[in-house]
């Protein structure tokens, strides 16, 4: 049994630029939206697919969930080809949509889930028990009999999570699950996913453009921009790829702005900002892992300065995201047509 739950090999997706009856008889130019995607996802991993709008995230998760057939290349999910074995793939995966329209609003949450449970082969008491369990899991048992058009966006998303789990899937694919909800509901949904949905048996793919969400939930993240994976790794790997220097902020008093020259030999670069309080904030860039900071602190004290605070600044996921997108823009070919 392969250790990878997902494997893609030179996966390319291209959408026709025009649709309609003409495309049935004639090959029309296509725009490439995923360009040679090669990646693997390990069993039990929470794998983020991050990128700006239009980057190709949803196309990738739709290929993995068998809703889109790739133009070329291949994708295997749980060892099965997503095109040739699509029925078998669908038996073993669950999908959570960010689109809240995917339910029948005239039916209650319970009735909706019971309907989908039947499509996954559950019936009778077994189906009812499973639906009740899941409604409790997502905290909707009290609203089970309420028609879904009375549900808030957050409640609909909870129901979508419950639907994704109906078949107790080995792989759960979540496509921007917090896209339509307010920040508080998004926070609650993330907590729900973290505490109740993720377990060691299940692999999760989370497509998102919320970097905080990726940071909070994912073991590894693939950044997609302009149809290409710009980088894949855990948070430290990603920071390492962009943050070539360590950055430290030191707030100092008792020294003049012009007197910090003595630090120049100790650090890669230094910027001094005068604060309203009369203090100075130094932004020091140093080689990673070097002894510069203790030496700098000692020298400042020796020169008569007082140190009020000293902190290490790390690139946020949003900054990494912006840098990855910029890298994608620089390396992107002109609009690719096939």
């Amino acid at each position: 049994m392969t250790q990878f739950v997902v494997e893609t090999d030179d996966l390319v997706m291209a959408y026709p630029q025009q649709r309609g009856w003409r495309s049935l008889f004639k090959s029309l130019p296509k725009k490439v939206v995923l360009d040679r995607i090669n990646t693997t996802i390990n069993r039990g991993e929470i794998f983020g697919v991050a990128g700006p709008n239009g980057a190709g995230k949803t196309t990738l998760v739709k290929i993995l969930s068998t809703l889109v057939i790739p133009f070329s290349g291949s994708a295997r999910v749980l060892g099965l080809d997503v095109v040739e074995d699509s029925l078998a793939v669908r038996r073993r995966i669950g999908v959570v949509y960010g689109d809240e329209r995917s339910f029948f609003w005239r039916l209650s949450g319970f009735e909706n889930l019971l309907f989908y449970a039947s499509l996954y082969g559950l019936s009778g008491k077994e189906a009812r028990r499973r639906v009740s369990q899941l409604l409790e899991l997502v905290g909707l048992q009290e609203h089970a009999d309420l028609r879904m058009h009375h549900y808030s966006s957050g409640m609909k998303q909870r129901t979508a999570i419950a639907r994704g789990l109906l078949s107790d899937p080995e792989l759960l694919i979540m496509d921007e699950p917090t896209r339509t909800v307010d920040p508080l509901a998004a926070m609650e949904l993330r907590a729900l996913v973290k505490e109740r949905v993720i377990d060691s048996r299940r692999t999760v793919i989370l497509a998102t453009n919320d970097m905080g969400e990726a940071e909070q939930l994912c073991d590894r993240v693939a950044f997609i921009s302009h149809g290409k994976i710009q980088m894949v790794g855990n948070l430290e790997d990603l920071r390492g790829a962009f943050q070539l220097d360590e950055i430290h902020h030191v707030v100092v008093s008792g020294l003049q702005r012009s007197s910090f020259g003595f630090l120049r030999d100790l650090v890669s670069s230094i910027e001094v900002v005068a604060l309203d309080t009369g203090q100075h904030q130094l932004e020091l860039r140093t080689a990673p892992g070097g002894p510069a900071v203790p030496v700098v602190v000692r020298r400042i004290v020796e020169e008569g300065g007082d140190i009020w605070s000293c902190s290490r600044k790390q690139l946020s996921m949003d900054e990494i995201f912006a840098m990855a997108v910029e890298r994608g823009r620089q390396t992107a070919a002109e609009e690719v047509l096939v």
């Binding site: 669908r90 999908v95 329209r101 995917s102 499509l119």
Partner: peptide, 10 residues
């Protein structure tokens, strides 16, 4: 918007 969810079950 329910066509894709309809096509997801096996």
């Amino acid at each position: 918007g329910t066509l894709e969810p309809m096509l997801l079950p096996p």
